[in-house]
Amino acid sequence: MMIHWEGVMPAVTTKFTSNDELDLVTFEKNINAQMEAGVHGIILGGTLGEASTLVQEEKEILIKKTLLITDGKIPVIINIAEQSTKQAIAVAKHAESVGANGLMILPPMRYKATDFETVTYFAEIAKNTSLPIMIYNNPIDYKIDVTLEMLEDLIKYDNIQAVKESTRDITNVIRIKNRFGERLKVFTGVDTLGLESLVIGADGWVAGLVCAYPAETVAIYKLVKAGKIEDALNIYRWFMPLLELDISPQLVQNIKLAEVATGIGTENVRAPRLPLQGLERDRVLNIINTAMKNRPSLPDYKNL
């Protein structure tokens, strides 16, 4: 499947039972809700997916299950976050062999690679797969900045096609578009900059709160792209307290609580993560409950 790098692509959560096993029933319910809302792709195995806690067998089950649910209607993209180039290449090859449609790749984990090492890491993966690739640039969390100069070196590989831009410097969207035009598609990866990034030219949104609120997220995207900024802004203002739950070390717990509220998830996380406790739990639930009481009616965004 050819990937059109545009639109809303949720970084989906992994669903667990109370016995710490994969909950494929709830997982399917959530993926179906995403598709019904009109998302443009599914991203598996990111931070929200608690990928670092999953064993290889579980990752493979989730890939195959997602491909079965989506049935070729939207692309399924696998996140790669590995410590070694060798293992990253192995993950890329495996993803391709089981039918994944694309890759989202982080820089090397647990080692602050130089610019040259980082470019070489991405390049070696690109050379060993035919799958299209989105580079994930998040120096805030992962301490490596993929600069414009590094991207200049990487675009010689045709399958490097997009960037998930999470520097928090929104003008970087414009810098990338000015430098590379349509050669590199740009996705915002910061929920609290979603609308702004789309307005100034981002092609899409790799979103977090979409896991609980897929229709609202896709509606904002569609309205912005249709030039209906004020309509999009009305939804976005309501959404902002929820979106701020994404920029927290406990984003997984926060978003899973929101999924409970909308009926498309459970609160179960995998240790060392634990469900929220005490005053912090009360604070997050208050944000979610307030949002649910004031949830906006959406326009017919699918037909824009």
Rank of each mutant, 00 (worst) to 15 (best):
H4T: 14
W5M: 13
E6T: 14
G7Q: 13
P10A: 11
P10M: 12
A11Y: 13
A11Q: 05
T13A: 12
T13V: 15
T14K: 12
K15F: 10
K15R: 13
F16D: 08
T17S: 15
D20C: 10
E21W: 04
E21K: 15
E21F: 06
L24H: 08
V25K: 15
T26D: 00
K29Y: 01
N32I: 08
N32V: 07
M35V: 12
A37E: 11
G41I: 07
I42A: 13
G45E: 09
G46R: 13
T53G: 10
L54S: 05
V55T: 09
V55H: 14
Q56A: 14
E57V: 04
E57M: 01
E58Y: 05
K59Y: 04
E60P: 04
K65M: 12
T70K: 06
G72W: 05
G72S: 07
K73F: 01
I77D: 06
Q83C: 10
T85V: 13
A92T: 09
A92Y: 05
G99Y: 11
N101K: 03
M104A: 06
M104E: 03
R110I: 11
E117G: 15
E117R: 07
T118G: 09
N128G: 10
N128D: 09
L131E: 06
L131K: 05
L131W: 08
Y136W: 03
I140A: 11
K143D: 06
I144P: 00
D145V: 01
M150C: 00
D153C: 01
K156L: 01
K156R: 10
I160K: 03
A162G: 00
A162H: 00
V163I: 15
E165I: 01
I170D: 03
V173S: 03
R175E: 09
T188Q: 07
D191F: 00
T192A: 09
L198W: 04
Y213F: 15
Y213S: 06
T217K: 05
V218D: 10
A219D: 06
I220F: 08
Y221W: 14
Y221D: 14
K222A: 14
A226W: 10
K228E: 15
K228T: 10
I229S: 06
I235T: 03
W238C: 02
M240K: 03
P241G: 01
L242M: 15
L242A: 09
L245S: 07
L251S: 07
V252S: 12
N254P: 05
A261D: 01
A261W: 02
G265S: 01
T266L: 02
A271S: 11
P275E: 12
D282S: 12
L285K: 13
L285T: 07
L285I: 06
N286S: 14
N294S: 13
K302A: 00
